[in-house]
Design a protein around this nucleic acid. Structure first.
Lengths: 148, 148
DNA sequence: GGTAGATGGTCAAGTAGCTTGACCATCCTG
DNA sequence: CAGGATGGTCAAGCTACTTGACCATCTACC
């Protein structure tokens, strides 16, 4: 395999990821959630299950805890999250999604589903499943971080 | 296909793209090119064939021409590009890669090839080719822009 | 051929999202 | 119950972008 093939594959992967990010973002906006940037989506993904501390979030997003704290401030101010006392550690605070935050998460899922549906129209369902399977096997198991 | 499947596929795609970006960047640094951010790679891709004007570059990168101009300033200051008079338009200036810029482009190709080689080890060559083929078909034909 | 608007580019100032540094409160370990 | 580690915030600074204003040159129309 030539270097130029590797570049073509890389470009396709980055273009697909960029397009997906943009479509999800547009879909979320279209569903009435404003003032959010794609980076917030990564935060929602970490907060969704059971909440998280600011330090957890910072590690997940690959940023300092100060920056994560600012980001949480913003989510709180906009009503998507709230800080609650941590049940087991008086230093820590558990950041949890509000009902509005959950609604936004569902909107993001719906937008992602729309984007994937467009791929199914082009490739067919089995091909899309195969694509997902292969991506999973080459994706670094770790956290999904905005890397550039 | 469930919404949760779409999210899993999206996460895998974004993780793969993020990992690839990071690996390319690390590979470029490891080959001795410093002071460059991943975003510069997108600029190099546009400059590589025959040079480009600042306005072209801005459109390609999805930013204002002022920002693109600043970015070119930086590349010039670091010796990767140079501004030459445009042969057919006295207003415009043609930004071209220097020999050092070409060397950096080759380093990025080599780093991408390394990353792809790691995928081949996991999936096998034919699967990786199939992956690239499918990505090309779902990627928005347009320019590769850093979308978040 | 001259003039009016469009286009390429830069200078200047402002903004948003991150960083580093300092600090306090609470925890855990010996 | 000390002393260090950890969770979190406040404050200041940096950097890559933005918007706004401006000049030089191209292009189209009369």
């Amino acid at each position: 395999m030539q270097n130029s093939d590797a570049m073509a594959l890389s470009a396709a992967l980055l273009a697909a990821a960029g397009g997906l990010t943009q479509r999800i973002h547009e879909g979320v906006v279209a569903r009435g959630f404003e003032g959010l940037r794609p980076a917030h989506g990564f935060a929602f993904a970490r907060l969704a299950p059971d909440g998280a501390t600011v330090t957890d979030l910072a590690a997940h997003l690959g940023m300092t805890k100060q920056a994560a704290s600012q980001l949480v401030d913003e989510l709180v101010r906009k009503g998507y999250a709230e800080r609650r006392p941590h049940p087991a550690d008086a230093r820590a605070r558990l950041v949890m999604l509000t009902e509005s935050g959950w609604a936004c998460t569902r909107a993001a899922e719906a937008a992602a589903a729309d984007a994937v549906r467009a791929w199914v129209d082009v490739l067919g369902e089995s091909e899309v499943r195969a694509l997902g399977d292969r991506l999973l096997r080459i994706a670094p198991g770790g956290p999904v971080r905005p890397a550039w």
